[in-house]
Nucleic acid binder design. Structure first.
Lengths: 140, 140
DNA sequence: TCTTTTACTTGCTTTTTGCAAGTAATACAA
DNA sequence: TTGTATTACTTGCAAAAAGCAAGTAAAAGA
């Protein structure tokens, strides 16, 4: 039911990314997956931006086809599926962090914590590895 | 003719960016503007991805409304308009560079030069400042 | 057994995209 | 000065994608 991908419009490396996540929703799913620790359909649906279930469903299929996520059965509950990021997906963390920093410093009404901006400006590398580990870099 | 912006879906800093450039075309225009030295409507239209003129036109209006670009009359030719990036726009350079690095390292058919990847891996900061200056960082 | 929960799907309307063609103003060449 | 290009768009229409509300199947829990 999900369209087969068109041939890429170009071989530009920026375009390569845009063909996968160049829309208003996909990067929000990746944000939830990589930064917010979300795993299930229901988790993603519960974000502030209120993604529709049909769109979420379609994006999860595409992300899997693109090799950015994988399904994982949940032993304790056969109804649930967990979506886990691949290595290629985790490599997108710097993109998300740069976008978040730009938004945090350019949106006058941003909801981003000051600690994030401070942490980025103090030591970007440390922030990145902390986020990659899933630890909260604003602590310690 | 260009829609008034909806209220933002959230105050997430990543979402803030997506509301401006969360589509398949806007970041390509910014790439051309910030990285390829393009300035005019015709320049943008000539990219490999072949953006339609109505979409390009609409995106330029939006980018101006979002404060990312400004129009500049061309003295020598009254037909032409040059589009120049604002400071907020130039602050998106790291986002573009991270996307380009990800694409260059994850697309098996990437057209990105190896020198870009090497330059990024050797010294990301230097690459960023070289690109901000408009100098070619693969030289010297 | 009945009610919830989870992960979707379906149908329909609205919005956005994509394509082809057309246009107005200026520049340029004969 | 007249005709041809060039530049930056606009218009119209078809196709694709997004958004919304409702429905469903399988498993869980009471």
């Amino acid at each position: 039911m999900v369209k087969t991908p068109n041939p890429p419009r170009s071989h530009c490396p920026i375009n390569f990314g845009l063909e996968i996540f160049g829309d208003k929703w996909t990067l929000l799913i990746l944000r939830d997956l990589l930064l917010m620790g979300k795993k299930s359909f229901k988790d993603f649906q519960a974000s502030d931006e209120r993604i529709a279930s049909n769109i979420l469903s379609e994006r999860l299929v595409r992300l899997e086809q693109s090799g950015l996520i994988q399904q994982q059965a949940v032993k304790a509950d056969a109804r649930q599926i967990h979506y886990v990021p691949t290595v290629a997906c985790r490599a997108l963390l710097p993109v998300l962090v740069e976008m978040a920093y730009w938004g945090a410093t350019h949106d006058p009404k941003t909801g981003a914590p000051k600690s994030f901006v401070r942490s980025y400006e103090r030591d970007r590398d440390r922030l990145l590895s902390a986020l990659a580990q899933g630890t909260d870099p604003t602590k310690s």
